[in-house]
Design a binder for these strands. Structure first.
Lengths: 147, 147
DNA sequence: ATGCTTTCTGGAATCGTTCAAGTAACGCTC
DNA sequence: GAGCGTTACTTGAACGATTCCAGAAAGCAT
């Protein structure tokens, strides 16, 4: 398994669920926990829901995956970590895609006032309409997420 | 009531709960729904939880208040709308403050690739430590929100 | 192999929020 | 300024995503 070493390098025990989840996140970027559970069960049919939640938390904690939590949507995960990229979320259907940073390297933004805060990360989320939803007639009632 | 006109101007009926909630959001910026319920009940002891949720949704929909949903935290509200400002969130205690836009006016950021998306808003959230939590000894177990 | 520790399973519980049905009240018209 | 239709509120239950808990299973250092 190509991921065993990665897990060990981060001080984690190598277990079936961890390898499978890490693999699933790599294969299905930006999918939510339920989607990942389905994917993981393709190779490991007996994993419990809680195992996947737990593994995702652990992997996020050690920095092996990145958690994305767009307002009004369940958390999504991706393997692209360490670089400085952001996300676009479709206001209508919730689809999410990567957007490379508009301005140099991480952290790409310096706030004009920090109010005494120590800034560690700047998270940028763009909201708009994906190509598919632009083509669709407006259906206000079906809007989802951030207004 | 100073807010009656504002409500009517946005095509909303003027009701006690609406005036009280709008007032509470102005008085207590960045507080969550539960905090606002408590505040509203100061002047209107009998409002129901759901009334406040409903009013907040309505006010957000018409653009009278802005909803902020930092990852891992309940939604917060503020009356500052229309201008282009962002937020800093304390990773340790969850405190949230305004940050004026680092770069010009709204939308302050143009992503380098839009992947065919129509971008409507750019939302920037800074994560770090507030002055108080910087002074405190590190307590990893109590960390909250985005890692 | 042995044993200690971490992680998994299964089930229940939690939080913030929304839904549903009935009652109340806003505000337009007469 | 009373009546009426529509919209908002109340009460109570339900929901989805996630976490907590206790016990069983499995990793890995010895």
């Amino acid at each position: 398994m190509i991921n065993s070493g990665v897990l060990r390098d981060h001080g984690l025990r190598v277990t079936g669920p961890r390898i499978a989840v890490l693999d699933a996140v790599a294969r299905l970027p930006h999918s939510d926990t339920l989607g990942l559970i389905a994917e993981v069960r393709g190779s490991l049919p007996s994993v419990s829901v809680q195992a996947v939640y737990d593994v995702l938390r652990t992997l996020t904690d050690v920095g092996l995956v990145r958690r994305i939590e767009p307002a009004g949507h369940p958390a999504r995960y991706e393997r692209r970590v360490g670089d400085n990229h952001h996300h676009v979320v479709c206001r209508a259907c919730g689809v999410l895609e990567d957007v490379d940073c508009a301005l140099g390297s991480a952290p790409c933004l310096e706030p004009s006032t920090t109010n005494g805060f120590t800034i560690e990360t700047a998270e940028v989320t763009y909201w708009g309409l994906c190509p598919t939803c632009q083509a669709l007639p407006a259906r206000p009632a079906d809007d989802v997420g951030q207004p």
